[in-house]
Every structure is written in structure tokens, then in C-alpha cells.
Amino acid sequence: MVEHRPLGNALTHLILILGVALVLFPVYVAIVASTQGPGEFLRGTLPLLPGGHALDNYRLMWESGLSRSSAPPAGQMLWNSLIMALAITIGKLTISLLSAFAIVYFRFPFRLFFFWLIFITLMLPVEVRIIPTFRVVADLGMLNSFAGLSIPLIASATATFLFRQFFMTVPEEMLEAARVDGAGPFKFFKDILLPLSITNIAALFVIMFIYGWNQYLWPLLITTDPDYYTIVMGIQSMTADEGNTPWHLVMAAVVMAALPPVLVILCMQRLFVKGLTETEK
């Protein structure tokens, strides 16, 4: 029997509201700062009410950027980040799905050995293997290119493991029924496994997109041409001159950089939550 305690419910909601306010307040401050003029920051205090320069600040950053920094316009950097994040996300999902499918449904020598070899790479993040990876990318002539930005990051042991665990829960009767109907391996994968994996794919898509979008160290290492700068790199270069930083313009770039991941989460929220919480297929 569920007991209704008004005081306990009120206290729970108060804690939740305080938690949400604590998380959202820095976001609100960034949005407000992006609408201010340059003179507002010379007073030493940050206004808490929006200003009247939002359109000018956003238009300037989108079209021109900061002339004093080496970064290109924010619109171009956002496009570069979008290409990189989508390439990493789609590449990770494709390779992980095919790897898990091969490991679960094909019988070949050292099958489990290759799976654990893939899984062990979790202990080798890109920061650990960054020097040999950079050497390989440089030898292949992929510096200052979208291929160099994305290809070294598309392998994912985590996604391979999660898809493998899910494929192992699919009843064997489905595979036998597909064989009776004359379906080959690819048709079974396309018509049965992929539709059943939609929620898992959606959840991993959101996580991997944010992972690719927030990359900083790898793009910084292999990119010297401003035409390939990502938005995270651009924001860092804008704040290099700490004593004379136009924070109202930097905050406009920060808000624009935060919008694509937020939109991805909002668009895929239902599938994302379902993919993380669903236990029965």
C-alpha cells in the first residue's frame, strides 16, 4: 500500500526543484551574457536580465567570428563539428552492429578471443594511444581532413559489447524461422535484428554524438588549418587572451555550441530513455 505524505512529497519536490535550478543557472547566465553589449562586462558585475544585443552578437559570431582570434566564423566551426560528430556516431554504430552480429551468429575459430580483444581496448582510450595514432594518421596523409578527425575514433568496444549482449537475448527460434523462410544472414540482420535494436541504437546514438561533438584533444592535435577547426577548439582560441576577451561574443558561441546536442537529446528523448531502461524485448 502506498502512503501519501504531503510533507514528504513537498520536500522531495523542493529538492528536485533546487537541483534543476542549480544545473540550469549557469546555462541561464551564459544565455543572458550572450545578449549583453561589450560595455556591460567592464562594470565588474554580470547582469541577470537579458540585454538587447542578442541578434547582433549571434549574427556577428555566425558570419564573421572574432577577428582577433585564429578561429573561423562559428557557423563554419559548427558545421565541422556536426560532420565530425555524425561521422563518429554512424561509424561507431555500424562497426559495432556488424562486429556484434558476427561474434554472436557466426561460428569461426577464436571467436571469443577476438571479442575479448575488442573488449580489452576499453583500457586504451585515445589519450593513451594518441602518439601512435597520430603517427598512423600523419603517414596516411589524413591531417587537416574530416577523415583524420573521425576515422581514428569510430571503433567502440562499449557499443560492441552492448549489442552483443542484446543479440544474445534474441530467441533462437527467430533465427530458425528466418532460415526456414530462406532468409540469408544479411536479410536476418536487416529485417529482424535492426528493428529490434532501434531503442538501443537511439540511446547509443545520443551518447556517441555528444562524445564526438565534445572532442577537443584529438582535433587540436591533428588540425592546424582553421578551415577544419571544431567549435570546441574555436571557443578555446577565443579565450586565449584572458585580459581582453569579449565574453559577450564568446558566450554567444557557447550557446550555439550547446544547441545541437540539446536538440539531439530532445528529438530522441523517448527512444533514448526507453533504450536505457527497457529490459524485455
Rank of each mutant, 00 (worst) to 15 (best):
H53L: 09
M142V: 00
F101C: 08
G51A: 04
A157E: 02
S156M: 06
M142G: 01
A159K: 06
E127A: 11
A33L: 13
A102P: 13
E127K: 11
L117M: 13
S64G: 01
S64F: 12
S99E: 01
G148K: 01
L112M: 11
A157G: 13
M123D: 03
S81C: 11
I130R: 03
A87G: 02
G52V: 10
M61W: 07
A159Y: 09
I131R: 03
L162H: 05
L60T: 05
I31M: 08
L48V: 10
F110K: 13
E127F: 09
I120V: 09
R59C: 12
A71W: 06
P152S: 07
G51M: 10
D139C: 02
R59T: 13
N144F: 03
L162W: 07
I83S: 03
V126C: 00
L124V: 12
V104R: 03
A159R: 04
A157W: 02
V32F: 04
E127R: 14
L117F: 11
L42W: 04
F113G: 12
E63M: 11
A33R: 04
G75N: 12
Q36Y: 00
V104I: 05
F113Y: 10
G148L: 04
A159C: 14
A87C: 10
P38M: 09
L82Y: 05
V27W: 07
L122T: 04
A54V: 02
A33F: 08
A54E: 04
S34G: 12
I118Q: 04
M84I: 06
I95L: 15
R68E: 15
P152E: 00
P125T: 05
L143R: 13
T89H: 11
L46Y: 10
Y28T: 01
S150K: 05
R135W: 11
L117C: 03
P26G: 13
S70N: 12
G37C: 05
S67V: 09
A54S: 05
L124T: 03
P72N: 00
F161I: 08
E63S: 13
S34D: 08
P26Y: 08
V104Y: 09
W116N: 12
V128Q: 07
F166P: 14
I130L: 13
S156L: 08
L149G: 07
L82A: 12
R59A: 13
S69K: 02
Q165N: 12
F161A: 06
V27F: 10
M61H: 04
A30T: 09
P152V: 04
L122G: 10
L162K: 03
I83Y: 02
Q165V: 12
N57A: 12
A30I: 15
R111Q: 08
A33N: 07
I130A: 14
A147L: 13
V136T: 06
A159D: 10
Y58L: 14
S64P: 07
T133G: 15
D56W: 05
L143I: 05
Q36C: 09
S145C: 02
A71D: 05
I154F: 10
L48I: 14
G75M: 12
L97E: 01
N144P: 15
A33G: 15
S81F: 08
V137L: 00
I130W: 06
K92D: 03
G39K: 06
R135F: 11
R111H: 03
S70E: 14
Q76M: 15
N80Q: 01
T94D: 01
A138D: 11
A138M: 06
